[in-house]
Each structure stands twice: as structure tokens, then as C-alpha cells.
Amino acid sequence: MTDESLQGQLNNAVKSAMRNKDKTRLGTLRMAQSAIKQIEIDERRDLSDEDVLKVLDKMLKQRRDAAAQYDEAGREDLGDKERAEMVVIEEFMPGALSEDDLDALIRTTISSTDAQGMQDMGRVMNELKPQVIGRVDMGHLSKKVREQLAG
């Protein structure tokens, strides 16, 4: 990625999608911009790249859940639309963590927070979230932390 802010990258991608007349991509990017703008207006502040990543991560989770529900209901056409939107959003997310890197990060965080067991899971998760936002599914992270804390 470049030194440009995530919002700047989104804006440039919208312009590019408009020039290329890519309606699916344009719609998805505008939806992301709208969600970001709504938070900026509601909270009356400019969002940092970390905040924008949180918004995009939430959008990805919504798309994942919706695609699964559409597939369950036999509406593959709508599931495919959700997955196409996920591909566009994922372009702006940081690279995923490997399982080995994730395990090492969890071990380091557990030792640095002096976590002793399941009662400390919240503290460990709060420490990990900012480091892994957009790089790993939070459900998967929670499962891995639970496994390591259980011993």
C-alpha cells in the first residue's frame, strides 16, 4: 500500500470505477464511503485508517453472513453478489495473518498480559484486537485464544 490514507484510496478507486463503468465495484465502494461518512457525521470527527478498517471489517462480516444465509435459502445468485462485494472490500484490507503468526501473537499477548486462564480472555482479546483488525476473523481469533488459555 502507499502512504495515502485509506479514505483517499477509496476515493481514487471510486473515480477509477466510474471511468471504467464498473457498476458492481462502484456500488460497493460508494456503500463503503457512505458507511464511513455516516460515522464521521454521527461522531463529528474524522476517521483514522484504523477506524476505516473497522468499518470495512464490519462490512465484510455482514457480507459473509448474508452470503451464507442466501446459500442456505437456495439463492446462489444473491450469495454470489455478496461474495463479489467482499472481493472489492478485501482489496483495502491488510494482508491476512498466517496461522503460525497468529499463534505467536496470541502467545506473546498472553504472556505480556499475565493471563492465567479463561477469566482473562477479555483482557487478551482487547489487547489483540487493534493488532489484528482486518487481518483475521474475530470468531477465529476468539477460538484460538480460548484454546491457548485452556491449556
Rank of each mutant, 00 (worst) to 15 (best):
108 T>K: 02
106 I>T: 09
77 D>S: 14
28 T>Q: 02
80 D>W: 10
46 D>R: 11
118 M>P: 06
22 D>T: 02
33 Q>C: 13
69 Q>L: 11
58 K>W: 09
26 L>G: 07
18 M>R: 10
19 R>D: 14
3 D>S: 13
97 L>R: 05
139 G>P: 01
117 G>P: 03
119 Q>P: 00
57 D>Y: 07
12 N>I: 00
85 E>F: 07
8 G>N: 11
90 E>S: 15
8 G>D: 06
86 M>T: 10
31 M>V: 13
57 D>G: 14
132 V>M: 10
2 T>P: 01
43 E>R: 10
90 E>T: 09
1 M>Y: 04
38 Q>C: 13
36 I>G: 12
52 V>K: 07
107 R>H: 01
98 S>L: 07
133 I>F: 06
138 M>W: 04
148 Q>D: 03
128 L>V: 06
147 E>C: 02
67 A>R: 07
36 I>A: 13
139 G>F: 02
13 A>C: 01
63 R>P: 00
1 M>H: 09
29 L>S: 01
91 E>W: 03
86 M>Y: 07
132 V>Y: 03
111 S>W: 02
99 E>F: 08
105 L>C: 06
99 E>I: 05
67 A>H: 05
122 G>D: 06
148 Q>V: 03
127 E>C: 10
128 L>D: 11
56 L>F: 04
102 L>A: 10
34 S>N: 14
18 M>D: 15
14 V>N: 12
113 T>I: 01
80 D>K: 11
37 K>C: 04
20 N>Y: 08
56 L>A: 12
71 D>M: 01
7 Q>F: 14
54 K>W: 15
117 G>K: 00
63 R>D: 14
109 T>Q: 03
69 Q>F: 08
106 I>W: 05
4 E>Q: 10
114 D>C: 01
104 A>R: 11
71 D>K: 01
55 V>C: 07
130 P>K: 05
19 R>W: 02
85 E>I: 00
87 V>D: 15
8 G>A: 08
121 M>Y: 08
3 D>N: 07
87 V>L: 13
141 L>E: 02
120 D>T: 02
123 R>K: 04
23 K>V: 07
14 V>A: 13
140 H>W: 04
127 E>D: 12
17 A>N: 05
150 A>W: 01
113 T>N: 00
64 R>Q: 15
93 M>H: 02
132 V>H: 09
25 R>G: 11
29 L>A: 05
37 K>A: 14
46 D>H: 05
141 L>K: 09
53 L>N: 10
111 S>T: 09
65 D>Q: 09
14 V>T: 11
96 A>P: 00
73 A>R: 15
144 K>G: 03
108 T>S: 08
21 K>F: 06
22 D>H: 01
127 E>L: 06
23 K>Y: 12
1 M>D: 10
100 D>A: 14
106 I>D: 12
144 K>Y: 02
51 D>L: 05
85 E>K: 12
134 G>H: 10
65 D>L: 08
8 G>H: 08
55 V>K: 06
64 R>A: 15
19 R>A: 15
67 A>E: 03
68 A>K: 11
22 D>S: 04
26 L>S: 07
147 E>I: 04
96 A>N: 07
75 R>Q: 12
78 L>G: 12
142 S>G: 04
76 E>S: 15
137 D>C: 04
107 R>N: 12
15 K>T: 10
62 Q>P: 00
131 Q>K: 08
11 N>T: 11
